[in-house]
Design a binder for these strands. Structure first.
Lengths: 205, 205, 205, 205
DNA sequence: AATGAATGAGTATTCATTCAT
DNA sequence: CATGAATGAATACTCATTCAT
């Protein structure tokens, strides 16, 4: 009875399972994904999966949590580090993030939240608290700082940092639904950022 | 005095059923809505529903078709009538439409398309052809006309009429998911329109 | 409002319906045949069909009755007319009948009786009384007459006129199931009749 | 002392289920048999049944396969063993088989094939290849061998071994439909075998 | 007499979840 | 810890039958 050469640590199991689940959900959507399929992808038995996640719903929530929160953590960390001007941040890390998201597998989570969110109020609350609220807060802080130090003039963007997020959400959805007919979302996102910065800086837009 | 068991209203039935389905889908989503529930809401038996719609999927598609296309028809009709300047159109009928949608029951359909679309490629194609493509086309025409007659200067908006649509999609989703924490979407939409018009008109934005 | 040129007499209706039903049952079997399909074939509405036949089962029974009994009537009439020797009858009308049946649409009724009979005991009883019993009775009489007048010697056939029926039933089934691989059923039936007559006549078979 | 909820007998399950299905189909016919009823008879849940048989149709086919083919195997094995004269085989193992079949539960399968066969062409093909063709082939070989070694003279039976099968099919059907009025099928079968052997041996039949 | 819109009981199939081993 | 056999509630869809018109 030979020992398997590399035996997976049990500590890694939950992450392997959520990773498998992310891809399964991405391909089929929540309802159409069978728990057994997730288990198979993770190289684990159904029973073991249920040992870590009490229900399919729990698994779904774990997926949301484990893949989205870190992204936001990164961004807020940069903001808090305070190492660049507001414009540098908006044209640098933010734009990078915004351009990367619509093509990444994580973008599927946006669709899953839209599709399944209304059925899971606690998940929505979690998402609000840990993703949306923090993300908008960080953006707001960047804009506010820009106004305070004279980079920007006061504008409607102070109240609506959402204006920076809109093109990302829009691009994610557009590409998910109409891959073929989708516009160049990179350009679209850049156009909106240019527009906003021009406006905030009082240039002839 | 018992209700008559049969009502025999062949003409109205399909619409009564799609209306009932719209609300059922809105509340529960496609997968979680039972066909029997739709029938009950429409005051009709399961069997009759299946007389008009061969499958649950057909019913879903009919819902999409019957509630969204007319909205686009209205807008394109105004554009084609050519009775106002581009700015008048963008600040008038378009803004009205954009502000009304996020609060209307039809906004549900946007979520349904996002949630269920990927499973129904033909539906996506239909939606593209009859809604998105036509809507963007009409918007593009308005912008183009504005440039031609000197109202606007050439800009990135010529290539991306999507910039006018973004805040609507964003608002619909935001309100659907985070009703309580949603910003004033009317203002958000107006802000984006102002921004774009300012940019196109070459004002100090 | 022009009168239809030929209006079908209501007296013909039941027969038109059973004829349509025969062909429908033949193609699909009893369970898979929809009443609506029968009505359509008969050029009649579902409601009218139900005016003549209270249930699908009644319709089925009517089909059996109306197409099989006349066949037996013909045969027994010939036997009773007493115009030919036993051998003449067995090699003439009986053989004709036996050869014709397996290829005729009525043969389907044999399959329907086998398939559906056990679910309808009264139908089986009717079939026994009006078809099997009478048919075997007539055959028995022919054989007996042959023995009495010296055409045949006494044999096991006196007790088992079934021996003449076997190849017909077998041929019907074989052709229904294995059309392509079926033997030449005419020859098979003739072979059995030869065999039996040879035996009864005491020839070196 | 409650029964254990799970029994875990992977090996035996399929056979337990097909056995239960055989009896259920025998009593009610294919269409009228509910899958749940089969499961209940097998002492198993619906879900488990579906684990082994993807559809009701698959279950039906499995029933046919598992109960009929072994019977044919037995017979052909005896033929191939070549341990007896042709007449010994025909009066021995063949006659035993022929007499046993009409009263056995397996006879039901003949009716099921007749009733359901036309809806399942692949099943018919399977039945032809594995049952009918092999059975007739073995019989043909026995007759041929008899002719070659002088037991029998050449006759129509060489071409139609079906003549030996006819009374079995006929008896099965007769007993299934008209239990009460059925003749003594053992005698009927014997009569036919006597008839054929007498003919083949050139006796005064 | 004739129609076909309307009904609803009946059933195959799926899949999240459990638990004996 | 780990497995996967076993469960059964849940649901889309069909079709014989009825009855208002």
């Amino acid at each position: 009875m030979p020992e398997p050469r590399f035996r997976r640590r049990k500590e890694d199991r939950p992450q392997e399972i959520t990773a498998a689940a992310l891809h399964a959900f991405a391909e089929k959507g929540y309802a159409a994904t069978r728990v057994e399929e997730v288990a198979k992808r993770a190289g684990v038995s159904k029973g073991l999966l249920y040992l870590y996640f009490k229900t399919k719903e729990e698994l779904f929530k774990a997926v949301i949590r484990s893949f989205v929160v870190p992204k936001i953590d990164e961004l807020t960390a940069v903001v808090d580090s305070n190492e660049m001007t507001s414009e540098e941040f908006l044209r640098g890390p933010l734009l990078d993030f915004a351009r990367t998201l619509p093509g990444s597998p994580v973008s599927i989570l946006v669709r899953l939240m839209i599709a399944e969110g209304p059925k899971h109020p606690d998940l929505l609350q979690f998402y609000w608290d840990n993703v949306i609220s923090r993300g908008l807060g960080a953006l707001g802080k960047v804009v506010e700082r820009g106004v305070e130090n004279g980079e920007f003039r006061p504008s409607v963007v102070d109240e609506f940092p959402h204006l920076f997020v809109m093109p990302v959400v829009f691009s994610v959805i557009f590409r998910l639904l109409f891959e073929k007919q989708s516009p160049d979302t990179d350009k679209l996102i850049e156009a909106q950022v240019d527009l906003l910065l021009g406006h905030m800086k009082g240039e002839i837009a």
